[in-house]
Amino acid sequence: MIATTIVHDSRPVLLVGGAKVKKKLLSAAIVDGTRIVAADGAANRLIKRGVLPDAVIGDMDSLSSAAREVLPEGRIHRIEEQDSTDFEKCLSRIEAPLVVALGFSGGRLDHQLAVLHGMMRYADRPCLLVGKREVVFLAPPRIEVGLPAGCRVSLFPMAPVGARSEGLAWPLDGLDFEPGRQIGTSNRVAGEGGEVAVRIEVESPSMMVILPVACFAAVRTVLRDPGLARWAAPRPDPR
Protein backbone atom coordinates (compact mmCIF):
# COMPACT_ATOMS: atom_id res chain seq x y z
CA MET A 1 0.00 0.00 0.00
CA ILE A 2 1.38 3.42 -1.01
CA ALA A 3 0.61 6.27 1.40
CA THR A 4 -1.33 9.26 0.09
CA THR A 5 0.66 12.49 0.06
CA ILE A 6 -0.52 15.05 2.62
CA VAL A 7 2.21 17.69 2.33
CA HIS A 8 3.72 18.58 -1.04
CA ASP A 9 6.33 21.29 -1.56
CA SER A 10 9.11 22.12 -4.00
CA ARG A 11 11.27 23.22 -1.06
CA PRO A 12 12.60 21.26 1.93
CA VAL A 13 10.01 20.49 4.62
CA LEU A 14 10.78 20.51 8.35
CA LEU A 15 9.51 17.47 10.28
CA VAL A 16 9.56 17.76 14.08
CA GLY A 17 9.40 14.87 16.53
CA GLY A 18 8.66 14.68 20.23
CA ALA A 19 12.22 14.73 21.61
CA LYS A 20 13.63 17.97 22.99
CA VAL A 21 14.99 20.36 20.37
CA LYS A 22 17.14 23.36 21.24
CA LYS A 23 15.62 26.68 20.21
CA LYS A 24 18.81 27.61 18.31
CA LEU A 25 18.70 24.42 16.25
CA LEU A 26 15.01 24.85 15.51
CA SER A 27 15.59 28.44 14.38
CA ALA A 28 18.45 27.35 12.11
CA ALA A 29 16.18 24.78 10.44
CA ILE A 30 13.34 27.25 9.83
CA VAL A 31 13.91 29.56 6.88
CA ASP A 32 11.39 31.82 5.17
CA GLY A 33 8.51 29.80 3.78
CA THR A 34 9.52 26.49 5.38
CA ARG A 35 6.51 24.25 5.86
CA ILE A 36 6.49 22.51 9.22
CA VAL A 37 5.03 19.09 9.94
CA ALA A 38 4.66 17.81 13.50
CA ALA A 39 4.66 14.12 14.29
CA ASP A 40 1.65 13.75 16.59
CA GLY A 41 2.42 15.18 20.05
CA ALA A 42 5.42 17.16 18.80
CA ALA A 43 2.80 19.79 17.96
CA ASN A 44 2.32 20.39 21.71
CA ARG A 45 5.90 21.57 22.16
CA LEU A 46 5.92 23.61 18.94
CA ILE A 47 2.76 25.48 19.86
CA LYS A 48 4.16 26.30 23.31
CA ARG A 49 7.13 27.87 21.50
CA GLY A 50 4.81 29.95 19.35
CA VAL A 51 5.26 27.83 16.21
CA LEU A 52 2.07 26.64 14.53
CA PRO A 53 2.72 23.55 12.36
CA ASP A 54 1.22 23.40 8.88
CA ALA A 55 0.24 19.78 9.43
CA VAL A 56 0.12 17.27 12.28
CA ILE A 57 0.37 13.62 11.21
CA GLY A 58 0.17 10.52 13.38
CA ASP A 59 -2.18 8.30 15.34
CA MET A 60 -2.99 11.27 17.61
CA ASP A 61 -2.42 9.43 20.87
CA SER A 62 -0.22 12.28 22.16
CA LEU A 63 -1.78 15.45 20.78
CA SER A 64 -3.14 17.55 23.64
CA SER A 65 -6.62 19.03 23.77
CA ALA A 66 -5.03 22.48 24.11
CA ALA A 67 -3.16 21.97 20.83
CA ARG A 68 -6.32 20.75 19.10
CA GLU A 69 -8.10 23.96 20.06
CA VAL A 70 -5.56 26.28 18.41
CA LEU A 71 -4.80 24.27 15.27
CA PRO A 72 -6.77 25.53 12.25
CA GLU A 73 -9.24 23.16 10.64
CA GLY A 74 -7.71 20.68 8.23
CA ARG A 75 -4.25 20.57 9.79
CA ILE A 76 -4.74 17.40 11.87
CA HIS A 77 -4.30 14.20 9.87
CA ARG A 78 -5.04 11.07 11.87
CA ILE A 79 -3.51 7.84 10.56
CA GLU A 80 -5.03 5.01 12.55
CA GLU A 81 -2.98 2.01 11.37
CA GLN A 82 -0.46 0.71 13.89
CA ASP A 83 2.01 -1.06 11.57
CA SER A 84 4.25 2.00 11.32
CA THR A 85 5.71 4.63 13.63
CA ASP A 86 4.59 8.26 13.61
CA PHE A 87 7.89 9.11 11.90
CA GLU A 88 7.08 6.70 9.06
CA LYS A 89 3.51 7.97 8.87
CA CYS A 90 4.92 11.46 8.30
CA LEU A 91 7.87 10.68 6.02
CA SER A 92 5.77 8.53 3.69
CA ARG A 93 3.22 11.33 3.29
CA ILE A 94 5.60 14.23 2.60
CA GLU A 95 6.63 14.84 -0.98
CA ALA A 96 9.56 17.29 -1.08
CA PRO A 97 13.15 17.41 -2.31
CA LEU A 98 14.27 16.95 1.31
CA VAL A 99 12.76 16.36 4.74
CA VAL A 100 14.78 17.86 7.60
CA ALA A 101 13.91 15.90 10.75
CA LEU A 102 14.42 17.35 14.24
CA GLY A 103 13.40 15.87 17.56
CA PHE A 104 13.92 12.24 16.64
CA SER A 105 17.23 11.60 18.41
CA GLY A 106 18.59 11.86 21.92
CA GLY A 107 15.75 9.92 23.49
CA ARG A 108 15.02 6.20 23.61
CA LEU A 109 17.39 4.02 21.62
CA ASP A 110 14.59 1.84 20.21
CA HIS A 111 12.88 4.97 18.88
CA GLN A 112 16.10 6.12 17.22
CA LEU A 113 16.64 2.72 15.61
CA ALA A 114 13.05 2.82 14.36
CA VAL A 115 13.76 6.18 12.71
CA LEU A 116 16.76 4.71 10.86
CA HIS A 117 14.52 1.83 9.79
CA GLY A 118 11.98 4.34 8.46
CA MET A 119 14.61 6.27 6.52
CA MET A 120 15.68 3.03 4.86
CA ARG A 121 12.12 1.84 4.26
CA TYR A 122 11.28 5.09 2.46
CA ALA A 123 14.63 5.62 0.78
CA ASP A 124 12.99 7.55 -2.06
CA ARG A 125 12.10 10.31 0.43
CA PRO A 126 15.46 12.02 1.17
CA CYS A 127 15.66 12.78 4.88
CA LEU A 128 18.31 14.58 6.94
CA LEU A 129 18.12 13.61 10.60
CA VAL A 130 19.49 16.41 12.79
CA GLY A 131 20.54 15.83 16.40
CA LYS A 132 22.42 17.74 19.05
CA ARG A 133 25.84 16.54 17.87
CA GLU A 134 25.36 14.82 14.50
CA VAL A 135 23.45 14.82 11.28
CA VAL A 136 22.52 11.49 9.70
CA PHE A 137 21.27 10.62 6.24
CA LEU A 138 20.83 7.55 4.08
CA ALA A 139 23.47 7.73 1.36
CA PRO A 140 21.95 8.30 -2.09
CA PRO A 141 23.40 6.35 -5.06
CA ARG A 142 26.01 9.10 -5.56
CA ILE A 143 26.80 12.22 -3.57
CA GLU A 144 29.51 14.88 -3.53
CA VAL A 145 29.76 17.35 -0.67
CA GLY A 146 32.46 19.79 0.39
CA LEU A 147 33.67 19.04 3.93
CA PRO A 148 36.52 20.43 6.04
CA ALA A 149 39.76 18.46 5.95
CA GLY A 150 39.96 16.22 9.01
CA CYS A 151 36.17 16.19 9.48
CA ARG A 152 34.83 12.96 10.98
CA VAL A 153 32.82 10.81 8.57
CA SER A 154 31.23 7.66 9.97
CA LEU A 155 29.36 5.13 7.87
CA PHE A 156 27.07 2.44 9.20
CA PRO A 157 25.60 -0.24 6.92
CA MET A 158 22.04 -1.33 7.68
CA ALA A 159 22.44 -4.31 5.31
CA PRO A 160 25.22 -5.71 3.09
CA VAL A 161 26.35 -2.94 0.73
CA GLY A 162 29.31 -2.11 -1.48
CA ALA A 163 30.70 1.42 -1.68
CA ARG A 164 33.36 3.60 -3.29
CA SER A 165 34.79 6.93 -2.26
CA GLU A 166 37.11 9.82 -3.02
CA GLY A 167 38.36 12.35 -0.51
CA LEU A 168 38.35 10.09 2.55
CA ALA A 169 41.48 9.15 4.49
CA TRP A 170 40.50 5.46 4.26
CA PRO A 171 38.77 4.69 0.92
CA LEU A 172 35.64 2.56 0.90
CA ASP A 173 36.51 0.75 -2.31
CA GLY A 174 36.64 -3.03 -2.08
CA LEU A 175 35.17 -3.27 1.42
CA ASP A 176 32.20 -5.55 2.02
CA PHE A 177 30.13 -3.49 4.44
CA GLU A 178 27.67 -5.46 6.55
CA PRO A 179 26.33 -5.23 10.13
CA GLY A 180 28.35 -7.52 12.38
CA ARG A 181 31.13 -7.74 9.81
CA GLN A 182 32.38 -4.40 8.47
CA ILE A 183 31.39 -0.87 9.48
CA GLY A 184 33.03 2.50 8.91
CA THR A 185 33.23 4.31 12.24
CA SER A 186 35.43 7.42 12.50
CA ASN A 187 36.75 7.72 8.98
CA ARG A 188 37.77 11.28 8.17
CA VAL A 189 38.15 13.71 5.31
CA ALA A 190 41.63 13.55 3.79
CA GLY A 191 43.97 16.54 3.77
CA GLU A 192 45.23 18.99 6.36
CA GLY A 193 43.42 22.23 5.61
CA GLY A 194 40.60 23.82 3.66
CA GLU A 195 37.59 22.16 2.10
CA VAL A 196 37.72 18.81 0.33
CA ALA A 197 35.21 17.40 -2.16
CA VAL A 198 34.12 14.07 -0.70
CA ARG A 199 32.44 11.67 -3.13
CA ILE A 200 30.60 8.55 -1.99
CA GLU A 201 28.84 5.96 -4.14
CA VAL A 202 26.84 3.05 -2.74
CA GLU A 203 25.18 0.10 -4.46
CA SER A 204 21.93 0.00 -2.48
CA PRO A 205 19.90 2.15 -0.05
CA SER A 206 21.56 0.64 2.99
CA MET A 207 24.33 2.99 4.21
CA MET A 208 23.86 5.63 6.90
CA VAL A 209 26.28 8.56 6.80
CA ILE A 210 26.97 10.30 10.12
CA LEU A 211 28.64 13.74 10.23
CA PRO A 212 29.14 16.46 12.87
CA VAL A 213 26.16 18.80 13.18
CA ALA A 214 28.38 21.64 11.93
CA CYS A 215 27.99 20.06 8.46
CA PHE A 216 24.22 20.63 8.51
CA ALA A 217 24.07 23.52 6.04
CA ALA A 218 26.46 21.94 3.52
CA VAL A 219 24.65 18.61 3.54
CA ARG A 220 21.20 20.20 3.36
CA THR A 221 22.25 22.14 0.25
CA VAL A 222 23.46 18.99 -1.52
CA LEU A 223 20.58 16.72 -0.51
CA ARG A 224 17.92 19.20 -1.65
CA ASP A 225 19.43 19.49 -5.14
CA PRO A 226 16.84 18.14 -7.63
CA GLY A 227 19.70 16.86 -9.79
CA LEU A 228 20.94 14.51 -7.07
CA ALA A 229 20.68 10.80 -7.89
CA ARG A 230 17.87 9.27 -5.82
CA TRP A 231 16.54 5.84 -4.96
CA ALA A 232 13.39 4.49 -6.57
CA ALA A 233 10.10 4.42 -4.69
CA PRO A 234 9.26 1.14 -2.93
CA ARG A 235 7.00 -1.29 -4.72
CA PRO A 236 3.37 -1.45 -3.52
CA ASP A 237 2.75 -3.97 -0.76
CA PRO A 238 0.78 -6.84 -2.41
CA ARG A 239 -1.16 -7.29 0.81
Rank of each mutant, 00 (worst) to 15 (best):
F216H: 07
V219L: 02
A218Y: 06
P236K: 08
P212Y: 05
D225S: 02
A214I: 10
P236H: 06
R220A: 09
C215Q: 12
P212D: 14
F216M: 13
L211P: 00
I210A: 13
V213P: 10
V213E: 07
V222I: 08
I210H: 01
M208Q: 13
I210V: 12
R230N: 08
V222A: 08
L211V: 06
P212E: 04
V213G: 02
R230E: 11
L228V: 11
L211K: 04
P234D: 01
R220P: 12
G227F: 12
L223I: 09
A214E: 14
P226Y: 04
A232Q: 13
R224S: 15
T221W: 05
C215V: 03
M208L: 15
R224Q: 15
G227D: 14
M207L: 15
S206E: 15
R220K: 06
S206Q: 12
L223Q: 09
L228E: 01
P236E: 12
V219W: 01
C215F: 08
M207D: 03
P226K: 02
W231V: 10
A229S: 11
V209A: 06
P226R: 00
W231C: 13
C215K: 01
M208C: 09
P236A: 04
A232Y: 03
L228G: 07
L223K: 05
P234L: 00
C215L: 07
R224A: 15
V219N: 09
M208W: 04
G227Y: 08
V219Y: 00
C215T: 07
L228S: 03
G227C: 11
A217E: 14
R235E: 14
